[in-house]
């Protein structure tokens, strides 16, 4: 029997949409283009098929997502994932939190940081640099944002360069976007 997941986990659930995903057989040329569907690549997730209903944002969203999370230089990939996790905690997107927490763990080969964050949130006992990153991500994700000049100064004190701070702003904000799709348009189901 399928079971909806309500608690933060690093076990990636299955995502079940509340709306009907696009039927590939009925996709327009623009939708196929945005989905990058080719005869050899016709496996598209339900999530992306849901977003394909709005092709004029999806076609920019996919490259934007990849650029924010994987562009060269700047903030490390693991720390970008931490920005994603901070946003996902505020917005309680269990699915996004699971995907990006497990990616963080794979990249750092460590599970303690995420375990501490899932247990204690911004009070987690983690390295000062990670704490400054998490705190900023959580505050920027509130509505309205609660991030202030002191939180920004804390990032500088923790040793982040301006290029790294920009990447943190982008990855955190990106998950303010992704969480508002993933968490509201479907639910996480334990496999």
């Amino acid at each position: 029997m399928s079971k909806i997941v309500h608690d933060f986990t690093t076990d990636i659930p299955f995502w079940k949409p509340y709306v009907t995903p696009l039927d590939l057989a009925e996709a327009s040329a623009d939708q196929l283009e945005a989905l990058k569907v080719t005869p050899s690549n016709n496996k598209v997730s339900d999530y992306v098929l849901v977003l394909a209903h709005d092709v004029e944002t999806l076609k920019h969203r996919s490259p934007l997502f990849n650029a924010v999370m994987y562009n060269r230089d700047g903030l490390s990939r693991a720390e970008r994932e931490l920005g994603a996790v901070g946003a996902s905690i505020v917005n309680r997107c269990i699915y996004c939190a699971a995907v990006h927490a497990s990616r963080h763990n794979q990249l750092t080969k460590d599970e303690d940081v995420i375990a501490a964050i899932f247990a204690d949130g911004v009070d987690a006992e983690i390295a000062p640099r990670l704490k400054a990153i998490l705190n900023f991500a959580v505050k920027l994700s509130k509505c309205p944002s609660e991030a202030d000049a002191d939180d920004m100064a804390a990032l500088v004190s923790a040793g982040l360069g301006k290029d790294e701070i920009l990447d943190l702003i982008l990855s955190t904000s990106l998950f303010g976007w992704a969480n508002r799709l993933m968490h509201t348009l479907g639910e996480p189901i334990a496999e």
């Binding site: 999806l58 969203r61 944002s145 991030a147 920004m152 904000s173 303010g176 508002r180």
Partner: peptide, 18 residues
Amino acid sequence: ELVAFVSYQIRVAVGLAL
């Protein structure tokens, strides 16, 4: 997408202003 995107864009601007 409209709500999600605008929420993103506002946060990017807030962060850059800081």
